[in-house]
Structure formats: C-alpha cells, structure tokens
Design a protein around this nucleic acid. Structure first.
Lengths: 343, 343
DNA sequence: TTGAAAGCGCTAACAC
DNA sequence: GTGTTAGCGCTTTCAA
C-alpha cells in the first residue's frame, strides 16, 4: 500500500493525494475528504523512510538514556512512568518515541550519540532527561537548532523549553517539617551533585535551615546513586558520626528505604529515635515499615507536559519558550517524628 | 555527507563505495580498506531512511511494551534491566532498539501496532516481552516471516527462538523450601494467568505440592498485578480465610513487600507467624524488614541472550531455533521460617 | 485545483 | 573489480 496504489485506486495523481493527506490548502475540500477516507479504509500509512528522505522528517522523537553508573539499568521505575506519558502524547500525534541507551561514561561519546541521531535524521527532536548543571547536550541541540525539551533545568545561559518538578520547594518543605518537629541536626542524602535536581534540592534544604537560623553542616550532606544500597551505606556512615543527625531527608524513596534498613540495624526506631523522609511517593513508600513520609509529585503530568512542549516546538507554532514547573505536596506518614528531648 | 560526496572524495563510484561498506566480496581488499577508513574519518553514516527504502533494512529492532492495566507505567524496573541489556548487545552491532508503547487493552489494536511497524519497515525484527499462553503476536510475526525472539515461551505450536527464566523450577524450589519447613497450607500470589510465566510458576508450585502428597487448594492461589498494592490486598484477602495459609510465595519481590505490610497490619510476625518468599532478588528485597527470602535470576543475562538470538535471526546465520533457559537460585534470608506447631 | 516530473540517498541488477 | 543505472515512496516545485 504505497501512495502510488492509493492514488490509482482513487483515480488521482500521487501529488494530489500527498497534498490532501498533508493538509495543504490547495486541494478541493471534497477531494481531500475522499482521499482521507479512502486512505483510512485501506489502512494506508506513508513509508517513514521515504518521507524522511524528502522532508527530513522522521516523525520520531529521541530519548537517549544514560546508563547508571552501576550499569545494567536501562531506566528505573521513575523514568518508566515519565516515558510512558511522553509516548502517549506523541503517539496521539503520530510520533514515535525512539528510546536508546548510552553506555560509555564519557560525555564526549554521549554527544556523539546525539549527533549521529541528528545527522541520520532518525529523529525530529529530543527529550533530554537527567539534565546536568552544565549540560553539553543542551548546548549541542541548541547550536544545531534541533528542537528539544529538557526534564530538569540547566544552568547554561540558553533559553529552551523545560519541565521540572519544584525540587527546591520540595526539599524546603521537607526540611521545614523536620525543623518544626524540633530537629536541628538534619542530614541530606542527596543525588549526584552534577545533576541540577540535586543542586536545587540542596538549595531548598539549605534555605530552610538558614531561615531557621541554622548553618548547613557539610558532613551531614552526602551523595548517593538513588538506590536502596546507597541509602543504606550513606546512613550507616552518618550514624557513625560523633554528632549524628537526628533526622534524614532522602533524594528518593528507595534511598529512604535503605536508610530505614540501616537505622534498624543500628537499633534505632524510625519515626521515634530518628526521623526520615523520602521523596517520590512510590508504591513501596506506602508499604515499608514504617510507612514513609514523602513528597508526592505527579510523574505522568510531567511526561504529558514534556510531550506537549516538544510537539509545540516541532509544529513551530510557538516560538516563545514555554516551561512547566510541577508543584509538590508533602505526604505525612509515620517515618518521621519529633526530636527526642535527649537528641 | 552522503554516499555521493564520499564517493567523489574517494574518486570512486557510489556503487563501489556501497559494496565496500556493506561487505560484498567483489571489491578489491585494498579498495575496501581505503573506503572504510575514509568513511570513518569523514564520519559518514548511511541515511537510514534511504537504506530502508531499498533494502527494507532499518537496522532497528522493535519492542512494543503493553502498558500496565493500571496505566502510566511504561516499563517497570525489571524490564529496565532487560531492555538495557538487549540494547547493549544490539548497539554493538549497529542496531538500535525502538521502544514503543501500546495503550489500548485490545489485542486487535496491539497486533495492528506490530503490523504498522512491519509495514512501514521501521524495524527488522522484534523482541516480544510478556509472552502470553496464546500469543497473537507470535502467530502474526511467524505468519509474516518477521524475525523475532520472545522473552517467555508461548503454548502455540510454533517453533521460534525464546529466552526464559526457569519459572517452573523457581517456584518448585520455593514451594519445596516451604514444605521442608513444615508448611502444608502454602498460598501462591501469582501474576495474571494469561501470561505463560504465571502458568509455569503455578505448575512448579503444584508439582512440588503433589510430590509432597498434597492437593493444591484453589482458594490459596490468587492473582495480582505484581505491585506492592496488589500484594497487600491479596494477602489481606488470604488472611481473612477461615483456614489461612501459613506460608506465601509471591510472584515478585514487590508483591512480597506488600504481603509483608499486610501481615504486619494483622499482627503477624513475618518469618515466624507466617513464612513469605519473593522472587527476583531486587535491591528492595535486601533492605525490607525482614529481609526477603527470594529467587535470584540474572535479568541482564536474559537480555544479552535475547539480543544475541535476535541478531542470529537477522543474520540468517542460524536457521535452527535456539533458546535459552535461565537457571535460578534460591536466596535464603529471614522472611520465611518453620511452621508453628499450632499452625 | 490538479498533474507531471525531479529528485532525496541508497542498493542491486546489469554491463563492462 | 568497478561503473552505470533503475528505482524504492515520498514531497515539492513547476506547468497546466
């Protein structure tokens, strides 16, 4: 079923069919309708390869997922929801989501990967995830004039559409809650500091502390890779400190669950001897012991916005740089609690 | 940088360049070397669109992920590792992994999605995940003569390469362990029965029971969607039974963690009052309370094999139907334990 | 408002 | 062993 056969079937020329299908204005309304309907009946789908040759349009959007330092992980559950939502939005508009991986830790290699996809015209635009403070991908795509949206902001002086969760606010809220419960020594189990989200979370945390008249203590701010294991290890480390934190705020629920395990091992009752908060409101956070106080954010909302902002770029409908900052909510459960008098 | 420019640069015809690059034998070894080297220097990459028009080769492999019934989830952490490993193997051979979603619950729509990808020549082959007992996708791809590998077997009478974990053995092992600890009333929190893996697990479970002279009790075999929530709900349901199971075997660690939460709520001490086992050896299984006895299996090994079997198909090197059955191991931790005398 | 025709970059007959 | 050439299916001038 090529445009050729379809045109023959309709007794029209292929160019008329093409124009009708692509919404050109110089086609009789009646003709267009006839074409569109017959195309649907026959299940005609333009060959993406042929199309991309002429128009350099691939009708695909690329995502290159950096593999975890630990290797093996394609994406975690979090990115699952995000990409699912993006795919849904794009799908409705005839775009496919091309998901690829990037194994090498070298930033140079990563940029090469983007260049290859651009050059081969495999994609019309990109979604960048795990945005870095100084993100070479943002620089590259901007320089090349390739449409893209980032999940997370960068600190480069480049205007571009982005979607982000209000990380700063989230961690300010969490910290304020711990402060209100009387905690003064609050640890932060953060993500890798090269990521913008980690910096923003730290900012929010430090702001809350300062507003309470406290000075952040570097020793209580540690970084891990967002897994249960790293939460466990980092917590064990913090608990070994001469002056240990009485409260912990974790970069995600998985780390918090690792933190809880470590506290248990140290004979501390979570929610009483030590106050722990997570982030993400994962299914697991509801069912761990004790249930985790955490920050809710609607991952799929973000995905939807990412998809929409990218489509707007691709349509070139809107030149203004749009963005979406997702609000956050605190969900109180039982893993946090007031500071002990002896704390 | 088209083959045209490259050919001019080399002072050769484009066909010679094409042949050299595609490894045809009728090219002087010296010429080939010169071409290959210059192509690399200039960073020449064939245009996938143009290539797919002529050769119907896209150098891409498709995976269509059915969205969860719950919606929103693109893939869970499990498929993350699997797809990551597949992508790695394919990547090394110049193939990209095209990951798409499928939203509609209708099987008809799903098959249409495959047909579209085939017809548009967007992919050269498929990896089918979550294989069903009667899988229309297997039927379709077989009928169309499109290369594919399945993760999980089907019960259709169709020979095709597959990779699977030894689900039957895994659940036989788990059941035997519970039996050895003196349990007689063993519940199975299974996955949806339409999936082959769920049937095989039930088979393994029932075989172990029968070999021990027991008859499986239908009321103790329940199905959920592999989330913590469903583990929680199903366990609450089983615990409400007049004659409740004293041991549970769960289809994955997430369900087991939900099960633990439910038991805690019912005032049961897991590992003592009730014996629970999971499956998957996830990071979370190590850090929950009590640490989960579970089944280890190497997800990324499976991904590697899937990639290799598919490449073999694509190369048409090997017509014999290959397969790989992954062995499993039991990991004993503290969530299971001997049956109570009063049990 | 429609049709004819020129390619996009590539592969694979076929000729030399 | 290498070059010539005919399309693959499509979009897009340009003519009618």
């Amino acid at each position: 079923m090529s445009i050729q056969t379809l045109a023959q079937d309709l007794g029209l020329s292929i160019s008329t069919v093409s124009r009708a299908l692509n919404g050109y204005s110089d086609v009789a309304a009646q003709t267009r309708e006839r074409v569109v309907q017959r195309a649907a009946e026959l299940g005609y789908r333009p060959h993406p390869g042929a199309r991309s040759m002429k128009s350099s349009k691939s009708n695909a959007v690329g995502v290159i997922l950096p593999m975890d330092e630990r290797g093996g992980q394609f994406i975690n559950a979090f990115y699952s929801s995000l990409l699912g939502a993006i795919a849904g939005v794009l799908d409705a508009r005839g775009y496919t989501l091309l998901v690829t991986t990037h194994f090498s830790p070298s930033v140079h290699d990563e940029v090469t990967r983007y260049e290859h996809l651009i050059h081969s015209r495999s994609v019309d635009g990109f979604v960048i995830v795990r945005t870095l403070l100084k993100d070479p991908r943002v620089q590259l795509l901007h320089d090349r004039g390739v449409p893209f949206v980032t999940y997370g902001r960068s600190e480069l002086n480049i205007e571009h559409p982005w979607v982000d969760t209000d990380n700063e606010r989230a961690f300010e809220l969490a910290t304020q809650r711990q402060l209100r419960q009387g905690h003064q020594r609050i640890g932060l189990l953060n993500g890798p500091s090269k990521y913008t989200f980690a910096k923003l979370r730290r900012d929010g945390y430090e702001r809350a502390l300062r507003n309470a008249g406290l000075t952040p203590t570097p020793a209580w701010i540690v970084e891990g890779d967002l897994t249960e294991s790293s939460g466990y290890t980092l917590t064990s480390q913090l608990l070994g400190l001469p002056e240990r934190p009485t409260a912990l705020i974790c970069a995600n629920d998985a780390m918090a669950i690792g933190a809880i395990a470590s506290c248990r091992q140290h004979g501390l009752q979570v929610g009483k001897d030590i106050s722990i908060m997570g982030y993400g409101n994962s299914d697991a956070s509801r069912y761990c012991d004790p249930p985790l106080s955490t920050i809710e954010h609607k991952v799929s909302d973000n995905g939807r916005h990412l998809g929409q902002l990218l489509l707007a770029q691709l349509d070139q409908l809107s030149t203004p740089t749009l963005s979406y900052l997702e609000p956050v909510d605190l969900i109180a459960r039982q893993s946090d609690g007031p500071a002990q008098a002896s704390g």
